[in-house]
Design a protein around this nucleic acid. Structure first.
Length: 153
DNA sequence: TTGGGTCCTG
DNA sequence: CAGGACCCAA
C-alpha cells in the first residue's frame, strides 16, 4: 500500500469511504485485510489531526483569544509546519486551499466547544467530527495515475 | 454479523 | 502506525 500517497489524499478527504479509496489505488488488489488497513490509516490520520487542532485551539484560548473569528491560520504558522511534516513530509505537493479552510473550521469548532465548556461532556468531540466529515472535497484525478508517486519526485 | 469509527496502547 | 477493546449502524 502507498502510505505516502494516502497521507497526501488526506489534504482533500478526512472521511473517504473504502469504495472511494479503492478507486484511487487502481494498482492495488484489495482484500479484507489491506482495505481495513487503508481505512485504519485514515483513522490514524484523523487522530493526529484532531489532536493538533484541539491543542492549537486550547492554546489560542489560553492566550486570551475571545472569539473563534479571530482564529486564522497563517501559511507559515507552527500548526502548518506540523501538519505538513506529518502528511506532506517532503513537500511533494502544494497544500490545497480547501484544506486550509477545513483546518480553520476545525479550529473554530474546537474553540467554541472548549470556550463553552462543552469539553466536560461525555462525547463532546462527536459533534465536531460530524461537522468536519461534511467538508471532504473530491480528490484530484491525477491521484489515480499509475505513476503518481514517481511524478512527485 | 460486518464494516466502519474512536480510544488507548505500545 | 498497528493492535485490540468496544460501540454503532446496516
Amino acid at each position: 500500500m502507498h502510505l505516502r500517497k494516502a497521507k497526501l489524499m488526506f489534504f482533500w478527504v478526512r472521511y473517504p469511504s473504502s469504495a472511494v479509496l479503492k478507486m484511487y489505488f487502481p494498482d492495488i488488489k484489495f482484500n479484507k485485510n489491506n482495505t481495513a488497513q487503508l481505512v485504519k490509516w485514515f483513522s490514524n490520520f484523523r487522530e493526529f489531526y484532531y489532536i493538533q487542532m484541539e491543542k492549537y485551539a486550547r492554546q489560542a484560548i489560553s492566550e486570551g483569544m475571545k472569539t473563534p473569528d479571530d482564529l486564522h491560520v497563517a501559511g507559515d504558522s507552527e500548526l502548518y509546519r506540523v501538519l505538513n511534516l506529518h502528511y506532506n513530509r517532503n513537500n511533494h505537493i502544494e497544500v490545497p486551499p480547501n484544506f486550509r479552510y477545513v483546518v480553520e473550521q476545525t479550529l473554530r469548532e474546537f474553540f467554541r466547544a472548549i470556550q463553552g465548556g462543552k469539553d466536560n461532556e461525555q462525547s463532546w468531540k462527536k459533534s465536531i467530527y460530524k461537522v468536519i466529515s461534511r467538508l471532504d472535497d473530491p480528490v484530484p484525478e491525477y491521484f489515480k495515475s499509475p505513476n503518481f508517486l514517481e511524478q512527485l519526485e
